[in-house]
Amino acid sequence: MLSVLIDTLDDEEGLARTLACLVGGAVEGVVREVIVRDNGSGDGTLAVAEHAGCHVVTGGLAAAVGAARSDWLLVLEPGARLESGWTDEVAAYVAHSSMPARFSRASGSRAPFLSRLMARPAALAQGLLIPKRRAMASKAADAEALARGLAMKTLRAGIWPALGRQGR
């Protein structure tokens, strides 16, 4: 089982999209809990998180990681959507590995060529699957910094990056 961590700020629509794709993982017993680390949202983000039964953390990233009850964390941007079948791939991976991983980009999710040339890739655009102990050892201030610079395996399961982040 794994804990899902979503680092958010004023993105209630994106959070709702991401939570919707996690329902199957909860039903299959792969997702134990969802932790939403809110950075001071002024819109309905907190209401969406609370209505969905998420654990809301308003402290730093270390507090959010510390609140996780599972040995593995799945870190996603609000608005990111996992393709169907992701649960089998993730369950098999965490059973036999201790290395961080990310998802493959879903076919059709790439931004236009010039946009990809001009933009810096977001480290979290393809999600992050990381052992909790490794995340706890990090000094990262936010989820994006946690994913930056890690050597990772790429899973076959696909992800649609958050809208507006596909070319970054």
Score class of each variant (00 low, 15 high):
residue 46 L to H: 03
residue 13 E to T: 14
residue 165 R to I: 05
residue 17 R to M: 08
residue 98 S to M: 09
residue 109 S to E: 07
residue 22 L to N: 08
residue 147 A to M: 09
residue 82 L to E: 09
residue 147 A to G: 08
residue 31 V to H: 07
residue 19 L to A: 07
residue 156 R to G: 12
residue 65 V to Y: 00
residue 134 R to D: 07
residue 63 A to M: 11
residue 63 A to S: 15
residue 57 V to K: 00
residue 74 L to Y: 05
residue 129 L to Y: 00
residue 63 A to E: 15
residue 154 T to I: 14
residue 137 A to D: 14
residue 86 W to T: 08
residue 20 A to V: 04
residue 15 L to C: 03
residue 140 A to H: 06
residue 79 G to M: 05
residue 84 S to H: 09
residue 95 A to Q: 09
residue 163 L to C: 03
residue 2 L to F: 03
residue 16 A to D: 10
residue 58 T to E: 13
residue 22 L to S: 06
residue 107 S to R: 15
residue 115 S to D: 09
residue 50 E to S: 10
residue 159 I to H: 04
residue 40 G to W: 12
residue 54 C to A: 15
residue 92 A to F: 03
residue 117 L to F: 13
residue 90 V to F: 01
residue 125 A to H: 09
residue 147 A to D: 07
residue 76 L to G: 04
residue 68 A to G: 10
residue 117 L to K: 13
residue 149 G to N: 11
residue 138 S to Q: 06
residue 62 A to L: 05
residue 125 A to N: 10
residue 75 V to Y: 01
residue 59 G to A: 09
residue 142 D to E: 12
residue 158 G to S: 14
residue 23 V to S: 13
residue 24 G to H: 10
residue 17 R to T: 05
residue 69 R to F: 00
residue 108 G to H: 11
residue 7 D to M: 07
residue 31 V to E: 00
residue 60 G to W: 02
residue 115 S to E: 11
residue 14 G to Y: 04
residue 42 G to K: 08
residue 74 L to D: 01
residue 120 R to F: 02
residue 21 C to F: 04
residue 128 L to V: 06
residue 65 V to A: 03
residue 107 S to E: 15
residue 152 M to L: 11
residue 6 I to S: 02
residue 45 T to G: 07
residue 78 P to K: 10
residue 81 R to P: 00
residue 137 A to Q: 14
residue 76 L to E: 05
residue 43 D to C: 15
residue 100 P to G: 07
residue 98 S to P: 00
residue 151 A to D: 14
residue 52 A to I: 01
residue 118 M to T: 14
residue 161 P to M: 04
residue 79 G to W: 04
residue 14 G to S: 13
residue 55 H to Q: 15
residue 121 P to L: 07
residue 154 T to Y: 09
residue 71 D to H: 11
residue 63 A to K: 08
residue 36 V to F: 09
residue 114 L to A: 13
residue 18 T to H: 03
residue 165 R to E: 08
residue 74 L to W: 06
residue 12 E to T: 02
residue 18 T to N: 01
residue 33 E to F: 04
residue 125 A to Q: 10
residue 19 L to C: 10
residue 74 L to H: 05
residue 63 A to H: 14
residue 63 A to R: 13
residue 160 W to F: 12
residue 108 G to Q: 05
residue 125 A to I: 03
residue 58 T to C: 12
residue 13 E to K: 12
residue 164 G to A: 09
residue 102 R to W: 06
residue 1 M to V: 13
